[in-house]
Simulated scan of single mutants.
Amino acid sequence: MRALAAAALAGVLVAALPATAALAADPKPDIAVTSAADKANYAEGETFTITVTVKNKSSVDAKRVHYTGGDSEGVDDVVYGELSTGFDLAAGATKTVQLTGKTNHVAWQRGYGYVAFELAADNGEANDADNITSVRLMVAGAFDDLGGYVFQGESYDAGWTPQTPGVEGVKVVATSADGKTKYAEATTDARGLFRLAQLPAGEVLLTFTAPAGWKILAGENGEYDHTPALVIADDSDEPQIYVPAKKVPVSSPSASPSASPSASSVAPSASPSAGPGLPVTGDNTMLFAVAGAVAVAAGIALALVARRRRVHLQA
């Protein structure tokens, strides 16, 4: 009896193995999606259209490709159309669909709105890396100020309190996110406070130039002198940016040129009427001059004595 039961169980397992292998080998569609807005900029309340390109990259037909979820900000009345109802997509095929909506006041305040969403097929998804897409909708027109502190700290994650000493004299420049367009410039006061006026809403890049003896610790690990920031119109006027800076040794100036030789080692300049002077050779020229004078005097004396002798002999 036990032998029959064991044989029956073995038969069930053997029968199940092909089915399991078939399930494991069953391929799934691979949905890839990209999207693009119809305009580069929008006004508040303007209707936008996003063109969505869906491609089935696998060799398996996709059944009812449809919107499964997503996120959005700064937009209203988004209509997904065929992405909501779904559509079949043959292996290797591509389909283009559209969705619409309107920008709202939040997009105007932040300088942009966005729509992000995910697609999938009823018969599965082979690769979740490329079935998600997002579109940013730029909304120009809003401006606001942006302020912050540059304060003394030993690391990039140093904390700030109202009692934390500031770093004075740091130049702060605000540019577009790509760094190509300059918007405004300011310098920190004695508290380390700076304020940049009338920046366009949206993402900006702040670059800090510290005075000698200070190093800016901006960025994720304090390795940079710049940091991104977001300008939101109608937002609080309170400072929003906090960047630490630490004291560093001041670089020594380069060595000054060697001092000129002292006056005692340089022959005095001759006056214009003195004629050319003797070259400086390091020899004691004065001693030679004196010796020469003595020799000349001795020669004159000998000549006089000899002359007297000739006169005496002639007499």
Rank of each mutant, 00 (worst) to 15 (best):
L205T: 07
G101D: 09
K171M: 13
L146D: 00
L83N: 04
V115R: 02
V97W: 12
V173C: 06
G101K: 02
G202A: 08
L196F: 01
G141I: 04
W214Q: 01
D122I: 07
D130S: 13
S155L: 05
V204T: 11
G192Q: 03
R110C: 06
L89W: 06
V97D: 12
A177C: 11
R195E: 14
Y114F: 14
V139F: 01
L146Q: 00
D178H: 11
R110G: 08
S84I: 10
M138Q: 15
E203M: 13
N127A: 15
Y183C: 00
G147K: 04
V139I: 07
A116F: 06
L146I: 02
G86S: 08
Q152F: 10
F143L: 07
S176G: 15
P200E: 08
R110Y: 04
V167C: 04
G113Q: 07
Q109V: 10
K182P: 10
G202P: 04
A90M: 05
L99A: 09
Q163P: 12
T209I: 03
A212P: 11
S84A: 15
L119E: 10
G159L: 12
V106F: 01
E185D: 07
R136M: 15
V150R: 00
L83G: 02
A107C: 05
Q152G: 12
D144E: 08
N127F: 14
V139C: 06
F143G: 02
Y156K: 03
W108A: 11
N127R: 12
D178W: 11
G101N: 08
A177Q: 14
L217R: 00
A91E: 05
G111D: 06
A197K: 02
D189I: 04
T161M: 13
D130C: 11
F87L: 10
V135A: 09
A120M: 12
